[in-house]
Write a protein that binds this DNA or RNA. Structure first.
Length: 432
DNA sequence: TCTGGGGTCCTAGGACCC
DNA sequence: TCTGGGGTCCTAGGACCC
């Protein structure tokens, strides 16, 4: 018999912050999105206060005026590093595991006859808590969708000791009968509303619909969820493939209308995109740029546009990608609008070995030179932190907040960011 | 007079996930 | 004053080819 365990970090970002701030255990804590825009992670105490996911930060003080709430800007270096340690432990537990997102992974448990899976899960939680400091919940079931449901129970009921196992028909039916359809993995807002309209409110109601009815209402993805709830494993065991598109986009703290300032942001996003491209070893054939104004400001004139350019030769070189992104930007920029958000998108990926070169566009010597240059830039940025080395076109003029002249004025607001406890450049120096 | 059928590729839109 | 960012998959329809 094969089972699937889903292991996910409880309130991941909050738990990561608490590793270095144990004084905040049992206190309401939230972590904000990029730009300190809205709440993306909440501790259980914050949830109990009634803070909703996605609450804009400025509304937090209005809605909870007399509460002491610890607030953090997001610190992805910290979260990435700590969750990588969790994954290392999972790798030791089972050779067959795959990471599903920053904070969760599936472990495939084969030939489980006679194994005490419940005990295994409880011990795994203890081991991770001790080694990394982050609490995890473990759900185990015969399909991934049922395992996800089990992990929800593990998270919400103390009696499970962080691990819930669905291994009998009685437990499956019981769990389904307690589970709202809207919470099922694969059922989003739209599908839930559609099902509620038909009087289907619980996962069990859905699972007991006929296959024909489900197929007539949903596409193959919805039907797959139905099969999974009924115990048929059909979500493939796969690490997510290499990305087919890569995007770096941001909302600005204020609004920007100046051509030159926007151009520099676009250059920075393009440079970050090409870095991501090189990390996964692919090259892109299409570079695109989008701009948009603030949709919340109905009093201002709105403008959204997107433009893309197909390259003759797929590339992952910073210089090439930045240059093309700037050309796209020039095409769509219009004076007189207050822009709120912009981004760079790379598409039509090709893999390293298969990268085609167009003989009209190919200069071998230049190609090799750029490749070496990108390698050096990536290495310096990896050691020293993002934007240690940048292209001239990414540069912002002027001075930083400390009065010193600065090469790159960070676009992102993160007033409450914790230190990079585990990955700082200074730490590396001190270790030497 | 006569208006098939199968295949591929691309795009836009809708749904989902964390 | 202030409202995140980054992805995937599926489907239908049009263009085009033979």
């Amino acid at each position: 018999m094969t089972y699937f365990a889903v292991v996910d970090c409880d309130n991941c970002y909050v738990s990561c912050e608490r590793v270095f701030r144990p004084d905040l255990n049992d206190k309401p804590v939230v972590v904000l999105s990029n730009n300190d825009g809205c709440v993306v992670a909440r501790s259980n105490e914050a949830k109990q206060l009634g803070i909703k996911a996605g609450t804009p930060y400025f509304k937090l003080a209005q809605e909870f005026p007399n509460q002491k709430i610890a607030v953090f800007s997001s610190n992805y270096e910290l979260y990435g590093d700590l969750t990588a340690r969790v994954m290392t432990i999972l790798h030791q537990e089972s050779p067959e595991y795959f990471r599903y997102s920053i904070d969760e992974a599936f472990v495939v448990l084969r030939h489980t006859e006679g194994a005490d899976l419940k005990k295994w899960g409880e011990e795994l939680h203890v081991r991770i808590k001790k080694a990394v400091g982050i609490p995890v919940s473990i759900g185990i079931g015969p399909t991934k969708t049922l395992a996800k449901m089990a992990s929800h129970f593990a998270k919400h009921y103390k009696g499970y000791h962080h691990c819930c196992l669905i291994d009998t028909e009685e437990k499956r039916v019981k769990a389904l009968s307690l589970y709202p359809i809207s919470e099922v993995w694969g059922i989003g807002r739209r599908y839930a509303a559609k099902l509620n309209g038909l009087g289907v409110n619980l996962a069990l109601d859905f699972a007991r619909m006929s296959k024909e009815e489900v197929q007539s209402l949903f596409n193959v993805v919805g039907t797959r969820t139905w099969r999974e709830l009924n115990g048929e494993d059909c979500v493939p065991n796969e690490e997510p493939a290499k990305k087919k598109s890569i995007c770096v986009s941001r909302s600005f703290p204020g609004m920007i209308s100046d051509y030159e300032v926007l151009r520099r942001y676009i250059s920075n996003y393009a440079a970050r995109c090409s870095e991501k491209l090189r990390v996964q070893g692919t090259a892109a054939s299409v570079v695109g740029v989008f701009l948009s104004t603030n949709p919340f400001r109905e009093d201002l004139q709105q403008y959204n546009n997107f433009y893309d350019i197909r390259l003759l030769t797929p590339s992952n070189s910073s210089i090439t990608i930045v240059k093309q992104a700037e050309a796209c930007f020039q095409k769509i920029y219009k004076e007189g609008f207050m822009y709120k958000r912009a981004g760079v998108v790379l598409m039509s990926m090709e893999y390293g070995a298969g990268i085609q070169t167009n003989f009209l566009d190919y200069d071998a010597e230049r190609f090799e030179k750029m490749k070496r240059l990108d390698k050096v830039i990536d290495r310096l940025n990896r050691i020293g932190g993002t934007e240690t080395v940048i292209l001239g076109s990414q540069q912002f003029p002027g001075k930083g907040s400390n009065g010193k002249s600065t090469l790159f004025a960070d676009a992102i607001k993160h007033d409450y960011k914790s230190p990079n406890y585990t990955t700082r450049w200074t730490d590396i120096i001190e270790l030497k």
